[in-house]
Design a binder for these strands. Structure first.
Lengths: 202, 202
DNA sequence: GTCTATAACGTGATAGAC
DNA sequence: GTCTATCACGTTATAGAC
């Protein structure tokens, strides 16, 4: 590890280390929870000393905040990626379902929004605002897709697009939690019901 | 406190104390999370010493298990109460929605299934089985109501009753979490969408 | 059943050397 | 940037007196 770091040079060490900590923390957050992972867990996983983590993220609240900002970035990349790859509303929705499905399949994980909202009263106060931003970002994206689908006549659902987007997001958040406890089938069933609930009745 | 306990007699003291601890723990579980509340929190809230709690629930895993069993009991009472009060499927579903709404309104709380599933990988192993039982119990009840509604022609939804029951339960679980972070409106919106999704199209 | 006292350990966080 | 060493505190849990 040390040898490798020295080989890639000083700047890369810093950047990689920080991102490595962040990735590890993200993994731990989604498989355990915010208050259930510790600096020691990170330390053990990537083989560095605890003060090294404190050097990059001086408090756990700072790490938590960076974590959410990191999620915001990957969310933007993921959703804009879907928009670029697919034009049709149905394809975009399926892209979103697939993205969520990937979270579930990548080993005992759930949606970060879910875990952080479940722990809302115990996470550091400054994490809450960023969390809210990410939640809104996803729901706004979903609402846009739904509005497009309704406009072109390929999707049908009750109420306003943003209301149905909220239903979808809530259901998937709950479904990921159910799926980890009860098996992947729970997730695919919920997706199926959501899909059926938006199909156009002839 | 002590005086009162002595007045009600020895047996009552034991029973009441145990239930008092359980109620307090339930409150803490739903407002914080399982790993985020401690014996000290209970101790501070009801003014007893920590070893007293250990006397009733020797380990935290035991307390957690008793907590879920307690939830199973109150769930049975609540759902059978709804069945006795209301005959029509729509009234029963609304009774369930109201019950969940009550959780949200009683101060910053969420569904215990939600919090425990969110922490699934960190809760003691013996809690998981009971948790699963309660989840299934609720979904089976919901499926029965949905099946009745479909049979009498007042409800309409895609797929099997148990599949739609899973969607409803997942959505509400997610909605309670969203509502605590983003405001009660999120919950009522999800309920509204679920309701619309089951109405009979003329 | 309840208490005081304490054990044994894990936590986030800091000081200071290299 | 990373380390060793250490701090102050909170955690679950137990021993033993009343």
């Amino acid at each position: 590890m040390l040898t490798t770091n020295r080989l890639v040079g000083r700047l890369n060490v810093m950047i990689n280390r920080k991102e490595q900590i962040l990735e590890t923390a993200a993994e731990l957050l989604q498989s355990r929870s915010f208050s259930s992972f510790s600096y020691k867990d990170i330390m053990d996983r990537i083989g560095i000393a605890k003060p090294t983590i404190h050097h990059h993220f001086s408090t756990k609240a700072d790490l938590g905040l960076a974590l959410i900002d990191h999620y915001i970035e990957t969310t933007k990349v993921a959703l804009e990626g879907i928009n670029q790859k697919h034009r049709k509303p149905w394809d975009r929705i399926e892209g979103y379902f697939n993205w969520m499905s990937g979270i579930m399949l990548s080993g005992n994980k759930i949606c970060p929004t879910g875990i952080l909202q479940a722990e809302y009263n115990v996470i550091p106060e400054k994490m809450r605002k960023s969390l809210s931003f990410r939640t809104q970002f996803i729901q706004t994206w979903l609402a846009t897709v739904l509005a497009d689908g309704k406009a072109e006549g390929t999707m049908e659902f009750p109420g306003k697009p943003e209301d149905h987007a909220l239903l979808i997001h809530s259901a998937i958040q709950g479904a990921l939690q159910q799926a980890r406890a009860e098996g992947a089938k729970k997730f695919t069933t919920v997706i199926h019901q959501l899909r059926k609930g938006m199909e156009v009745k002839k």
